[in-house]
Design a protein around this nucleic acid. Structure first.
Lengths: 203, 203
DNA sequence: TTTTGACTAAAATATTAAAAAAGTCAGAAA
DNA sequence: TTTCTGACTTTTTTAATATTTTAGTCAAAA
């Protein structure tokens, strides 16, 4: 049982390596099998199909992301510092796993209901995490705003929006270079500063 | 001279009608010519090629946009009201000309340098307009923040980011429905409220 | 229970032919 | 001289097809 899970994780490891290097679309099940020196049917013993292997990869990346983001979270810090840290973790992951770009990969991978639901759920988890950050800041009287869940969603979406704008500026499928990447991070932090300040004043 | 310009504008009118209805990609020069009951070479008398006709359309849409946005601008209003108005105008235009979607239309229309520069310049004009709004609010002591140009850029990009998030949520090429559209507008306004409040407090 | 070689079915890719659209030009109309 | 057109050429898209690649299966071995 534990051995089986271990093997499963190894396959996911191998898949991630290939995906990062060549993208999901240009990675075949054979590629992954060869990298791991096993046969293709072995892969299909652990995953019903390629889609579920991709889901496994997504789950893994997000799991690691949440792990790190929670590890770095210290409720005693000022809200702005907490959010700055989170932005850094977010963007580190974004940079590391940019090549995964679920958007492209396979023709309509993003249109698949199972994957859409998965991503939605994970995005929901992130929202919840941010809602907790804002809630605690409210308890500490750092901010004054009723609906922390709503504020968290707005904030997170604004961050993601700035990220998307950066990608579009760079040109869809090119990797944003160091400079553009840093510019984006700076914008996110500048927005954070103003945003947090805006939450401090009472309604 | 004036007559020639008039004809040019008529061609742009016709092109816009077609573009809105069928999209840029599925509109041919013949379609536009037929609509106007003229021959195709007539079009080429006023525009060197299709690209420049498209540029004419873009210039026209943005011209009308700036016209209206400036008309509605009343510096005596509170900053938040001004921004709310601008959001409404922005989104009305977005909705009206959504079908233009330069992004798709022709294979790599957005990769064309001339069009990219044009859009960049127009985006720059919008930035300047927002910078002026923030500058005047600063003069009126409504906000306290040094670099109004920088703040304007950050604000505008955040708005556009939220818009892009909405489009991606809806599913790339479907038209965002009334509900999603209103949700987006609301998010933009909520962000505006917090943003403006954040600018009020001193650094 | 886990793994594999040899297989089939489905999908992506390359090739080519046909159609449609962009763009040109000599000359007519205003 | 300026504006416009019918008839044309060239370039791009699209459609059809053959070819290759890849996903996924299965009986049997480890």
């Amino acid at each position: 049982m534990i051995v089986a899970d271990k093997k499963r994780e190894q396959i996911i490891d191998g898949a991630i390596k290939r995906f990062i290097h060549f993208g999901i679309g240009k990675t075949t099940m054979n590629d992954i099998a060869e990298d791991l020196s096993v046969s293709k049917p072995s892969l299909y013993y652990y995953f019903p199909d390629k889609k579920h292997l991709i889901i496994g990869v997504i789950e893994r990346v997000f799991h690691d992301f949440f792990e790190l983001i929670k590890k770095k979270y210290n409720p005693d810090q000022p809200l702005e510092d907490i959010l700055f840290n989170t932005i850094d973790v977010r963007n580190t992951f974004f940079q590391k796993y940019y090549m995964l770009r679920i958007t492209e990969g396979i023709p309509d991978l993003l249109n698949d209901d199972v994957i859409k639901d998965k991503l939605k759920a994970l995005k929901g988890s992130e929202k919840e995490f941010f809602a907790e950050i804002f809630s605690r800041a409210k308890e500490k009287r750092e901010i004054e705003h009723e609906d922390t869940a709503h504020v968290a969603e707005l904030y997170l979406e604004s961050l993601m929006g700035l990220c998307t704008m950066c990608i579009m500026e760079t040109g869809k499928d090119l990797f944003p270079d160091k400079k553009a990447f840093n510019r984006m991070t700076l914008k996110q932090k500048n927005l954070t500063t103003i945003f947090v300040r805006g939450l401090r004043c009472a309604d």
